[in-house]
């Protein structure tokens, strides 16, 4: 300890103190302040850039979510439209079928009515024909009778037999 005190150099202490304080002041002005300011500015710039990038990412995500939603809605709409179209189609087919059935029924009825009418008219014609025939026969019979009484009887008999069969 005594040696330490003995070797203590006032001059060195003085110079160290003065030079170091001078160095701190000079470096503060010419080095530390500009360096730290520049670094801080740069860091702020980086931070801002990162923040805006994050924001852009968020916006992008929102946009994507919106797109997704729109797409989903569109898909649902398409689905609904398709379903509606299918319904309409089946309904139309159903309707058409029904109508056709109706038409067919009506036509059948009409045909039946026509057939009935035709049948009636045919019957009437037949009756007329038969009446004419009968009259003809009767005429023939009468004429025959006038010539041959026996034959006449035979004819009438056979003809009658035929007629009854009809």
């Amino acid at each position: 300890m005594e040696k330490l005190i003995n070797e203590f150099s006032i001059g060195l202490f003085f110079w160290q103190l003065v030079l170091f304080v001078g160095l701190v002041l000079l470096l503060r002005k010419f080095a530390w302040k500009p360096i730290l300011d520049a670094v801080e500015k740069r860091e702020e710039g980086i931070k801002d850039a990162l923040d805006s990038a994050e924001k852009a990412k968020l916006d992008m995500e929102n946009l994507q979510a919106d797109n997704e939603k729109l797409l989903k809605e569109a898909r649902m709409e398409r689905e609904a439209m398709l379903k509606e179209a299918r319904d309409i189609k089946s309904k139309m087919i159903e309707d058409a079928k029904e109508e056709a059935q109706d038409q067919a029924n009506k036509m059948i009825q009409q045909a039946q009515a026509a057939i009935e009418g035709e049948k009636k008219s045919a019957m009437a014609e037949l009756k007329n024909h038969v009446a004419g025939l009968s009259i003809e026969i009767a005429e023939k019979v009468i004429r025959e009778e006038l010539s041959n009484k026996d034959k006449q009887v035979d004819l009438v008999e056979s003809m009658l037999a035929e007629t009854t069969l009809n």
């Binding site: 070797e7 150099s9 060195l12 202490f13 160290q16």
Partner: peptide, 8 residues
Amino acid sequence: NIAVTLAL
């Protein structure tokens, strides 16, 4: 030197 470290 203790003078230097003392100053600091």
